[in-house]
């Protein structure tokens, strides 16, 4: 069943795209292509392939271990934290939590491992290229 999830989701998406393209944006207007032309074209294609894949099925892939989703959780953590403490500190905290708690490095080494890349990013992106990273609510708007 699981291997049919992708075509099923794409089929749902294509239904919405087709509906919006046809009824909301319009395929053709007087004298030119309407905004709905590409949505209708692409969703029709998507629907055809999705249906083929749904009927034919697919060899099941192996189970996905939970560890694959560690990076997702970590980025979610960094994004959430960035609202409070700013993006770069949040990335630093993310690195530290990951290396210390998940990869079980000793506290001191984890601190060093997290601080290195954070400082390098700060130097290149913030100081040199002047990327305006969000500072977060805690440290002055």
């Amino acid at each position: 069943m699981r291997q049919k999830a992708i075509p099923a989701l794409v089929l749902l998406m294509s239904a919405y795209w087709f509906y919006s393209g046809w009824f909301v944006y319009g395929v053709w207007y007087a004298g030119g292509l309407g905004g709905g032309f590409m949505p209708v074209l692409s969703s029709s294609l998507a629907a055809i392939f999705a249906i083929v894949l749904l009927i034919r099925g697919d060899a099941a892939a192996g189970a996905i271990p939970w560890s694959a989703f560690i990076p997702v959780a970590m980025v979610a953590l960094a994004v959430t934290l960035s609202h409070a403490i700013g993006l770069l500190p949040a990335v630093g905290v993310m690195l530290f939590v990951w290396v210390w708690l998940l990869e079980r490095y000793p506290f001191g080494r984890a601190l060093v491992i997290a601080a290195g890349p954070t400082l390098a990013i700060y130097g290149v992106f913030r100081l040199w290229l002047q990327v305006p990273f969000p500072t977060g609510a805690l440290f002055g708007g």
């Binding site: 980025v75 994004v79 990335v91 993310m94 290396v99 890349p117 990013i121 990327v131």
Partner: peptide, 11 residues
């Protein structure tokens, strides 16, 4: 390296 690449992806 995995956490570091993740940090670079975010930034």
């Amino acid at each position: 390296v995995a956490p570091v690449i993740t940090a670079v992806c975010v930034v």
